[in-house]
Design a protein around this nucleic acid. Structure first.
Length: 263
DNA sequence: ATGGTCGGTTGCCGA
């Protein structure tokens, strides 16, 4: 079972590279974020033609939006309105093997890392706080659950190109990292990317559009994550960041993260 | 220290 997460930055505009992903990677399940399309306008037929007949979506007009595309039937589809907003940041569904997959898009948080002057930063902090609470109240850590998505926080020193230079940059501030770690440990989530790559090794999933040569500059961040409950983490056999996708035609600024599951 | 580029609810806002 191969599961991919990818912040696609407009699913309609990226259909050619979604197709490329399906051809090159052959995922069973694809979690997308920032689809930027209302459910009414979702490209169902194009997606289904790629071999993904089972689709769970939570989209709104113009921004945010998440979905799960699957070769296998999806059951028990749902979403939670984080911080009380129905703003297309969450969808989940259960696969035939009993694994519940969540596609999640955490708020980016704006530019100023101070909730007193930036509401978007406060929203992000509240959202991550709620992650610690919601899973604890609504799910069991003994079940097989996976959270895939753009969590918009790079928690480790080597999840960013320069720890020191990014300490005051939203996505890597101490308060965000503290809340991220609290949400992760509260439920016992296993980081399925760092399970395969040592903490001391640089690991990125996003490179800004504002760079002439993203590969040469390599000023990346690991904003996208794959978390699994301990029971499921043992079944995760491989992880790959598809960095080459950053060079595909009309790319997203994020690249796919690929997980392989036994069973 | 600054600005750089994308996408869509476009001539701005969010990322």
């Amino acid at each position: 079972m191969r599961i991919v997460t990818w912040n696609i930055n407009s699913v309609r505009l990226r259909m050619p590279i979604v197709e490329k992903l399906t051809q090159q990677v052959a995922p069973d399940v694809i979690c997308l974020q920032e689809t930027k399309v209302h459910d009414d306008q979702f490209p169902f037929q194009d997606i289904q033609a790629l071999g993904y007949p089972h689709i769970a979506i939570n989209g709104i007009k113009g921004y945010n939006g998440v979905c799960i595309l699957s070769k296998h039937p999806l059951s028990d589809i749902g979403s939670h309105s984080w911080t009380g907003k129905s703003d297309g940041r969450h969808i989940y569904a259960t696969l035939p093997n009993g694994v519940e997959v969540h596609s999640l898009y955490v708020p980016a948080g704006g530019d100023e890392p101070d909730r007193a002057i930036n509401d978007k930063f406060g929203h992000k902090l509240d959202f991550v706080d709620e992650m610690a609470v919601w899973f604890g109240q609504n799910r069991k850590a003994t079940d097989k659950i996976m959270v895939m998505g753009d969590l918009n926080i790079a928690p480790l020193e080597h999840d960013v190109w320069s720890h020191k230079q990014l300490l005051k940059i939203v996505s890597h501030t101490p308060i965000e990292v503290e809340k991220f770690n609290a949400a992760q440990t509260a439920f016992g989530w296993v980081d399925c990317m760092r399970k395969f790559v040592p903490d001391e090794e640089k690991l990125y999933t996003w490179w800004s559009y504002r760079s002439k040569d993203w590969r040469a500059a390599n000023k990346g961040r690991r904003l996208d994550h794959a978390w699994a409950t301990p029971a499921l983490a043992d079944q995760v056999t491989a992880m790959q960041v598809l960095s080459d996708a950053r060079d595909w035609e009309k790319p997203s600024d994020h690249v796919p993260v690929i997980l392989d599951l036994a069973g």
